[in-house]
């Protein structure tokens, strides 16, 4: 329990530091937001009034605290370009990106774990060697490229879905998930190959350890040794990977959303970067940072659950 509290405290500190760095960086470069919102032709009086309204006349530390408080309350500011609250610009899009990421993650696990266990168990076999080379190829294909190939094969040739025919989750949940499965495959494939390769490696490493020999000496068959002893040990190093994988796939969805015309946060974020619409960029990046840092916290807690050696430290 102390471990969890300690990790949670570290997480909160990390969040504070990251948010401070991001806020300062974006504040320093953003110039005068009032001029940007009203244009250069605006009268000094109107500019001053807007500055006052946006709280820009206050000192940076106070602005940071105010921004942080309103961010936590779900209101991370007003877009320079669209002149409406950032929350309303992003709120409908975050669930889409998140669903795509989670779906990809589930696919990574359902493909990567069995493949890793199989190739670990039968390492050196013909199938293992074939999978190994195939893995190298799959890891080399960027998701936006495989995404295009997937929409061509499954969409245009096999007619399993209509590329570009995105179905909103508000219209039909099955339709929404059915459309997302193909981009999720594109995002998941290289990560699943990585997971399989990593798990194969950790299984073989554990297989060489002394406790594996002990397990054999007690009369276990291969499956008994593998599933009774090796797997749990081999999973520990994989946890860190899965955590990073989750964050990386979030970034991966930004790219693949474009291929499949999915209205997630990608388009808004990139348009805002192009328009230098900093409140939107800051909010989106901050949300992703929160997501990643919390993922890391969950990984740390999972380690504590799985590994008795990290108890109470």
């Amino acid at each position: 329990m102390r471990y969890v509290l300690k990790k949670t405290a570290t997480t909160l500190i990390t969040l504070a530091v990251v948010s401070l760095l991001l806020f300062v960086a974006f504040s320093l470069i953003s110039g005068d937001p009032a001029t940007r919102m009203l244009g250069t032709g605006a009268t000094p009086e109107r500019l001053e009034a807007l500055r006052e309204e946006l709280g820009l006349n206050e000192a940076l530390p106070i602005r940071y605290v105010k921004w942080l408080v309103s961010f936590v309350q779900g209101d991370p500011g007003i877009s320079y370009v669209y002149k409406q609250p950032v929350a309303s610009l992003l709120s409908a899009k975050v669930p889409v990106t998140l669903s795509l990421t989670i779906m990809s993650f589930v696919l990574v696990c359902t493909i990567g774990f069995p493949l890793g266990i199989y190739t670990g168990k039968y390492a050196g076999s013909a199938l293992d060697r074939a999978v190994m080379v195939l893995n190298q190829v799959i890891m080399a294909v960027p998701p936006f490229f495989s995404g295009i190939l997937i929409s061509w094969v499954f969409g245009m040739v096999l007619h399993l879905f209509a590329p570009g025919g995105y179905v909103s989750y508000t219209a039909s949940i099955p339709g929404f998930l059915g459309y997302l499965i193909f981009p999720a495959i594109a995002i998941a494939l290289p990560r699943a190959a990585q997971l399989a390769k990593l798990l194969r490696g950790t299984i073989l490493e554990e297989a060489g350890k002394n406790y594996t020999r002990t397990a054999y000496s007690r009369g276990n068959d291969t499956n008994g040794v593998l599933f009774g002893h090796i797997i749990k040990n081999a999973l520990l190093p994989v946890l860190t990977f899965l955590g990073m994988c989750f964050s990386n796939m979030l970034a991966g969805s930004l790219v693949v959303e474009r291929v499949f015309n999915i209205p997630g946060i990608s388009n808004t974020l990139l348009a805002s970067i192009g328009n230098r619409d900093y409140p939107v960029v800051l909010a989106a990046v901050m949300w992703i940072a929160v997501f990643i840092i919390v993922t890391n916290l969950i990984v740390d807690i999972l380690y504590m659950v799985l590994d008795p050696r990290i108890d109470g430290e």
């Binding site: 002394n210 002990t214 397990a215 000496s217 009369g219 040990n233």
Partner: peptide, 21 residues
């Protein structure tokens, strides 16, 4: 027979047990 009629103990007691069981 392994573990039932013929058993073995090893030189490395520190590493011969499964650390997670």
């Amino acid at each position: 027979y392994q573990g039932d009629e013929i058993s073995i103990i090893f030189q490395e007691p520190m590493t011969s047990l499964d650390p997670l069981q």
